[in-house]
């Protein structure tokens, strides 16, 4: 890989370079290893996003936090920081922990207002919805950045 592409990916802020470079270093004895790894990841993420969507509809917080936890692990292993941060939010909100004091009213995802917001699951669902949208956004951006780096469309 050219240095130019490495710098471009680093500048994108989508990946934790120390983790990513370690993965790419694995290519030296198996060409295309890191690329196939990211391809597996992309497939997995698409599936997981779909599952999160379904569980958002059913307002199943327990399942949502498990999914957030799972995706967080994947993102962390591959050094995809943007997705990682949002997965952490999903996991925390699933535990009904507004750890970052996020003001859900600012989010376009929060359309319905409840009298006593924090006591209803709707509040947490709205927070997770927000995190999911940002995770999707991070995923799309990461995918673009990675596609440029690997010179291939994921």
């Amino acid at each position: 890989m050219s240095d130019e592409k490495s710098q471009e990916l680093q500048a994108s802020g989508m990946v934790e370079w120390s983790v990513f470079s370690e993965l790419v270093a694995m290519d030296e004895d198996e060409e295309g290893f890191s690329k196939s790894l990211f391809q597996t990841f992309v497939d997995q993420v698409i599936d997981t996003f779909r599952e999160i969507d379904e569980n958002l509809k059913q307002k199943n917080l327990e399942k949502l936090l498990a999914l957030g936890h799972y995706l967080k692990g994947l993102a962390a292993a591959l050094g995809l920081t943007q997705i990682l941060a949002q997965c952490e939010r999903i996991q925390n909100y699933g535990h009904k922990n507004n750890f970052d004091n996020f003001d859900v009213a600012q989010s376009p995802a929060f359309t319905k207002s409840n009298g006593d917001e924090s006591t209803t699951n709707d509040f947490w669902i709205a927070l997770i919805q927000d995190a999911l949208e940002k995770a999707r956004d991070g995923f799309v951006k990461s995918k673009i950045a990675l596609s440029r780096y690997f010179d291939d469309e994921f």
Partner: peptide
């Protein structure tokens, strides 16, 4: 059971 983890971990181990 997770594919990404299998690929990654196996690679590390082989190395």
């Amino acid at each position: 059971d997770d594919n990404v983890c299998i690929q990654l971990c196996r690679k590390f181990l082989v190395k």
